[in-house]
Design a protein around this nucleic acid. Structure first.
Length: 108
DNA sequence: GCTCTGACGTCTA
DNA sequence: ATAGACGCCAGAG
């Protein structure tokens, strides 16, 4: 490709998929991994997003865990992600979870 | 080429 | 509902 070689081909693919995620929607790590061709590589997806810089064109905040909630291993704090999602129109329930039926992105 | 780690996922206690 | 353990995959040393 032109210039998508940062680390591994997988990381690049993950970035592309997440970049395709429409605004106001969210996708799970396993979902991105599945779209990448490896439904079991959810951990690898997290590693890819972790490698992204602050001003990256990839909306990493639209990626959440299978519970529809934000992971707590974030380096900048999960509060940042929650705020970004709320700004995009994503609603959280009483348990801090997202309605997968409404905001769930299937990789269209 | 082996080993360790890690923005995960799912099960069982 | 909460906590702990096992499994899976890719990147870095």
């Amino acid at each position: 490709m032109t210039s998508e070689s940062r680390s591994g081909a997988f990381t690049t693919k993950v970035c592309r998929i997440v970049a395709k995620c429409p605004r106001g929607k969210v996708v799970s790590y396993g979902g991105v991994a599945a779209l990448a061709g490896k439904p079991r590589a959810a951990r690898a997806v997290g590693a890819a997003l972790r490698d992204l810089p602050d001003g990256s064109p990839v909306p990493w905040w639209r990626v959440v865990n299978s519970s529809g909630a934000i992971s707590k291993r974030l380096n900048h704090g999960p509060l940042i992600q929650r705020k970004l999602l709320l700004k995009e129109g994503v609603k959280f329930d009483r348990s801090g979870r997202i309605d997968w039926e409404i905001f769930g992105w299937n990789g269209q």
